[in-house]
Design a protein around this nucleic acid. Structure first.
Length: 736
RNA sequence: GCUAGCGUAGCUCAACGGUAGAGCACCGGUUUUGUAAACCGGUGGUUGUGGGUUCAAAUCCCACCGCUAGCUCCA
């Protein structure tokens, strides 16, 4: 007998081979019908798998009372289980519709699932109806999902017999240390899978294929392209419809659409991809934010600086940025016509990619580009050749469009001798940097090639690090809070101990990582450590903010750096009259102005609060007779620093109101004969048009001033986080 | 960068082998208006670029550029 402990505290004994489904049956047949999966001793498992087995699989002692929670369609965990099963059903359908389908992975996502297929021809959206129809048939048949386990050798044989090469490969790599593997069979479809699954296909009540795109097996871009088919599934048609509606609504907030509609920014093919043009209205939003942050920085002891947009390549070689990120930078600017020839020459030599034939061609071609390297040792070693080429290169000008501000700020720090008394030195700049992001990554303002960081670098003593870091995190929190961006999480990005892409000593890294942890813990700010996400010079705390479509963007970041001071030989004179090495903190609360404004456009759906609105107030004269008075009102508002215009068109006030409303102008001031006579204005509030008040102009100005001063956020339209729509996170780790 | 899809007027879209069209915007005129669109008229496109097939190409084919989704990357 097994002893089962239910969530209500009751305990009951069942026969040894009982399953959660059997327990449910004993409670009631309606419950049994509703059961989708179960949680046994804390682990989500199949409802048709014996309790004892599940308890063992959970690493617990089945002799002890087994805690059991039955999952029905009301539990979010059940949704994930069902979607995983839906992925299997989709795979089964795809295999029926297309020949020669190889299976890769098919995990769940917070809003659905996907499955990767290796197949000769790509799937097209036109194919969706056929696949969906086949899925519908499978679901209607409501066959069970049957789990079975095989020892390693037999599992390999089965996958090989099924012709599933990728599964075989996965068994031999990712699952190399598993002695026994589980499979699920559903009709003719058998798949290597960890599970769990729903009892039968009939539990899926609503599903839809969403999109298809290329993907790579285990994320390896050098491998062949798989077809990743995305879908979603719900326990009711109503939930599916709600989800689809939500996606539609989110699309309407797309900053690229709103940016165009409201003339905020423009990305012109003629300027170049990823290079944003700030239109006057967008420029107001950005400028206002810049003023806001600059004011905060000065109050917190930062000193503004400026630095040029280019710098010598050598400087970026010292910092490490050039060698580490060369591929994602714009090409260097060479002062000599043969600069890029020699550069290529050096690269090939250093990579041992230069054969004698090519070397001869380089030598022949060099004179045409005016490159004279008389001492090139044709018969010499690679090192000697490199030395000769580098010596030539060293005499030429090479500039880089700056990919980062830190080396420039480092030079500002170094421009004078520093005493411990003046630390921390906090240098701030809205620095524009250029990165040649991959073309497929560009995305409106959210991912661009020219961006302005609200950057600053703090140089401090090792003792000051934690307090500086603490204050900086508080600044980021303040800034995000001021804009009502509260949907964010903090990620502690650490180095991957197994990788060699990092610079600096073990000791420095440990110190830096420990400091970050301590401060975040002291602040009681929940954070998730993520190995392998650090910058090459140091660990960082990243603020990941969610946009309206649920995508996450890294905005603010605070990075701790013991390494650049080392590389640039930075010093300060300590109280002991000896030279010491400072520590650097890199930080950008907004990240970049481009991305930040992009996220804000979606966050506010372009309906900015008064203090940020490109046009704050529009004056609407009823007829041309009031144009003069309207002009006086406009002048009075402008004199108080408001962004106001007057609608002087000859159209009716109805049309003027409609346009102002659609343009999301926070306040309209209607002025007719009455107002002109009495020196008043009638305020029409965009958010509350029903309650209008006619008050003296001076009084209206006071109201607006208060709202701006307090940076009031009166309404943030939020896409509802529809409850019951989302399952848990996808299958992680060694999911198979 | 890779895979797939898509590029028609300032914007949103139609025409899908047979002389490129609508609404909004814009311009001109009439109207002088009290809370989400007054009326009349007009301008505007060698259909992303360059080749090709065809009697004929926005439409079919190729290359390039750009955009979108996903993948890979992100100092």
């Amino acid at each position: 007998m097994v002893s089962v402990l239910l969530p209500d505290g009751s305990r009951k004994d069942y026969p040894d081979d009982s399953t959660p489904l059997a327990v449910a049956e004993s409670i009631g047949s309606r419950l049994a019908k509703a059961v989708v999966a179960a949680v046994v001793n804390g682990k989500v498992v199949d409802s048709r798998r014996p309790l004892v087995e599940s308890a063992e699989a959970a690493g617990t002692d089945p002799a002890q009372p087994i805690s059991l929670k039955l999952l029905t369609d009301r539990d979010p965990e059940a949704l994930s289980v069902m979607r995983h099963s839906a992925a299997h059903i989709m795979a089964r359908a795809v295999m029926r519709v297309f020949p020669h389908v190889g299976l890769a992975f098919g995990p769940t996502l917070p809003t659905g699932f996907y499955y990767d297929f290796d197949m000769p021809d790509p799937i097209r959206e036109d194919d969706f109806p056929r696949i969906e129809a086949e899925m519908g048939k499978i679901i209607a048949e409501a066959e069970t999902f049957d789990r079975f386990e095989l020892p390693r050798g037999e599992a390999l044989q089965l996958c090989a017999d099924l012709g599933q090469a990728l599964k075989v490969q996965h068994l031999q790599t990712g699952l190399a240390d598993h002695a026994s593997l589980s499979f699920y069979r559903q009709g003719e479809f058998v798949d290597l899978c960890r599970g769990p699954h729903i009892p039968d296909a009939g539990r899926i009540k609503a599903f839809k294929l969403l999109s298809v795109a290329g993907a790579h097996f285990k994320g390896d871009a050098s491998g062949r392209t798989l077809q990743r088919l995305y879908g979603t599934a719900f326990f009711s048609q109503k939930d599916l419809d709600a989800y689809l509606t939500q996606i539609e609504e989110a699309k309407r907030r797309d900053h690229r659409v709103l940016g165009k509609q409201h003339n905020l920014f423009h990305i012109s093919q003629d300027v170049g991809p990823g290079l944003a043009l700030w239109l006057p209205k967008g420029a107001v939003v950005r400028g206002t934010l810049e003023e806001f942050i600059k004011h905060e920085l000065v109050a917190r002891g930062y000193t503004p600086v400026y630095s040029p947009h280019v710098g010598r390549v050598e400087m970026y070689e010292t910092s490490g940025h050039f060698p580490y990120y060369r591929d994602s930078q714009f090409s260097p600017i060479f002062g000599h016509p043969g600069g890029s020839l020699v550069d290529r020459w050096i690269t090939l030599l250093a990579d041992n990619g230069l054969n004698p034939g090519n070397e001869r061609k380089f030598l022949e071609f060099a004179p045409f580009l005016d490159v004279k390297i008389d001492n090139y040792p044709i018969g010499g070693s690679v090192e000697e050749k490199l030395a000769a080429l580098r010596s030539w290169q060293g005499m030429q000008e090479r500039y880089l469009l700056k990919p980062m501000n830190c080396p420039h700020h480092v030079q500002i720090y170094k421009s004078q001798q520093r005493s411990y008394r003046e630390l921390p030195v906090r240098l701030a700049e809205f620095g524009t940097v250029y990165r040649h992001e991959q073309s497929g990554e560009l995305n409106g303002l959210l991912r661009v090639r020219g961006l302005t960081q609200d950057d600053a670098h703090q140089f401090c003593t090792p003792d000051q690090v934690e307090n500086e870091f603490l204050e900086t995190v508080k600044l980021v929190q303040f800034v995000l809070g001021s804009l009502g961006l509260d949907n964010y999480r903090v990620q502690l990005s650490l180095r991957d101990p197994g990788s060699d892409k990092y610079v600096g000593s073990e000791e420095n890294w440990q110190r830096a990582e420990a400091s970050l942890r301590r401060v975040l813990t002291d602040l009681q700010l929940p954070f998730e450590p993520r190995a392998g996400e650090a910058a090459f010079y140091g660990p960082k705390a990243d603020f990941m903010v969610k946009d309206c479509i649920g995508r996450e963007w890294q905005l603010g970041t605070v990075q701790l750096d013991y390494n650049l001071p080392e590389r640039f030989q930075l010093e300060y004179i300590g109280a002991d009259n000896r030279a010491h090495r400072p520590v650097m903190i890199h930080r950008a609360p907004f990240g970049s102005m481009e991305r930040f404004v992009g996220v804000l456009i979606e966050h506010f759906a372009a309906a900015f609060p008064l203090w940020l609105a490109p046009e704050q107030i529009r004056i609407l004269p009823i007829s041309e007779k009031q144009n003069e008075y309207a002009g006086q009102v406009e002048q009075a508002l402008k004199g108080r620093g408001f962004r106001a215009t007057t609608d002087l068109r000859s159209s009716k006030v109805n049309a003027k109101i409609r346009d102002a409303q659609l343009e999301l102008i926070p306040y309209m001031l209607v002025v007719g004969g009455k107002e002109a006579e009495q020196g008043t204005v009638t305020i029409r509030d965009r958010l509350d048009p029903e309650h209008q008040q006619s008050i003296p102009l001076a009084q209206a100005i006071e109201l607006f001033q208060t709202e701006v001063r307090e940076r009031k956020i009166r309404q943030t339209k939020k896409v509802p986080e529809a409850t019951g729509l989302h399952g848990g996170e996808g299958v992680e780790e060694n999911a198979y």
